[in-house]
Write a protein that binds this DNA or RNA. Structure first.
Lengths: 210, 210
DNA sequence: CCCGGTAGGTGTACGCCGTACACCTGTGCT
DNA sequence: AGCACAGGTGTACGGCGTACACCTACCGGG
């Protein structure tokens, strides 16, 4: 049932996931669902935990490669399940969710050797970036280069008197029309920048305490 | 009308902003609103532009101080208007929105002297982080230290056999109960880390081209 | 002075949503 | 044989966005 709900939300977004449609898909009457979940929010919680289950978090390597793999896997997961973007950290965490957070903290505390506060900073920084990237990918209306260019051209064209008022926006339109916009590449640039910054602070701290 | 809608959404969230309630608040019948906006989405667009209007973006100083002030102002805005978090970059951008993006690109291109691709990378990195932080602040259920601790304690208590399965989560519960969780402080740590990383890449590039 | 257009408020109605509540049925344990 | 209970059903309520037809008050040009 939860799997079906995830599939429904994957194609069509959260809006097209209603208890009625889900029941239909399962060949059952809407109210039958309430024998398995208390309400729709509980269903969403269960769906989120499925997303967490899909995430991979390799141990064994350096903290940096582990955190990098985690971030990439998470972005991919949220890219597959855009509906989950605003829901990952709300309400009751499921078992996979708990496991994931615990493993991440363990990696930062033990493998990277960060003190508690620093680990929290690093965690918060990385997750904010990951969720923010997923959110942008979900909401930004530039998917196809041509579309992006059209959009920005239209903006300029709508008010001819303002055509040159936003030269930098125009530049974006032109450039993206030429070469496209790759969310994955964009994400990895920022990810590596962030990992660098964390690594630097880690070294600074361990140098000052030795 | 749009101001009233913003006020309604500020207290009570997006869910409690319905055309009917808004009409009520304005002493008018629901359908009257449709003489001023085509549909609810258009209303949301207008509301988002109000948020952009509130943002401050000081010129004059260094690119770094400008971008830092922008980021902080943006986080504050999204903290005041949590409902806007998922809506800032969707659909038709309003005039304040266009102005803001153009000014930001101008700062990165001209003041910071970044080439186009690099400016886009930096912009994407910063905005993802800002939106992600706002999203976490909105959705994470740890607002009051006591509540956070309770939550995590409950998680451990629910399955006594698993009580020690998540030692790092337990640590988080204990630490935050002691000292609280400050979203602003957390945000600024990451913000400065990101600004450092961008600055480093900027210097590297300009060194290699001279 | 009238008169038509228009800006803006009204009332009714439709189809969707989540879900409360009472009811029914088949299965398995004692 | 009896019964509890898991799980499917039907009806109904209140809320939502909004299509559509209607009404009213104003305002500029003949």
């Amino acid at each position: 049932m939860v799997r079906t709900a995830v599939a429904l939300a994957d194609r069509g977004g959260l809006d097209s996931l209603s208890m009625r449609k889900l029941a239909d898909k399962l060949g059952v009457v809407p109210m039958a669902l309430y024998k398995h979940v208390a309400n729709k929010d509980e269903l969403l919680d269960a769906m989120v935990d499925i997303v967490f289950e899909e995430l991979e978090f390799p141990g064994g390597g350096s903290w940096r490669s582990a955190m990098r793999a985690r971030a990439i896997s998470m972005r991919e997961g949220l890219s597959r399940h855009p509906w989950a973007v605003g829901l990952m950290e709300v309400r009751a965490p499921g078992p996979a969710n708990l496991r994931h957070h615990n493993a991440t903290m363990a990696c930062l505390r033990k493998d990277a050797g960060l003190p508690f506060r620093m680990a929290v900073h690093a965690y918060s920084l990385m997750d904010s970036y990951i969720y923010g990237s997923a959110l942008q990918e979900k909401t930004l209306p530039i998917d196809i280069p041509a579309e992006a260019e059209t959009r920005l051209r239209v903006i300029a064209a709508e008010q001819p008197s303002h055509a040159n008022e936003y030269p930098y926006l125009a530049e974006i339109g032109v450039e993206f029309a030429k070469s496209g916009y790759d969310y994955r590449e964009e994400f990895e640039f920022g990810l590596d920048a962030i990992l660098d910054a964390i690594e630097r602070r880690r070294k600074l701290r361990s140098a000052s305490t030795t």
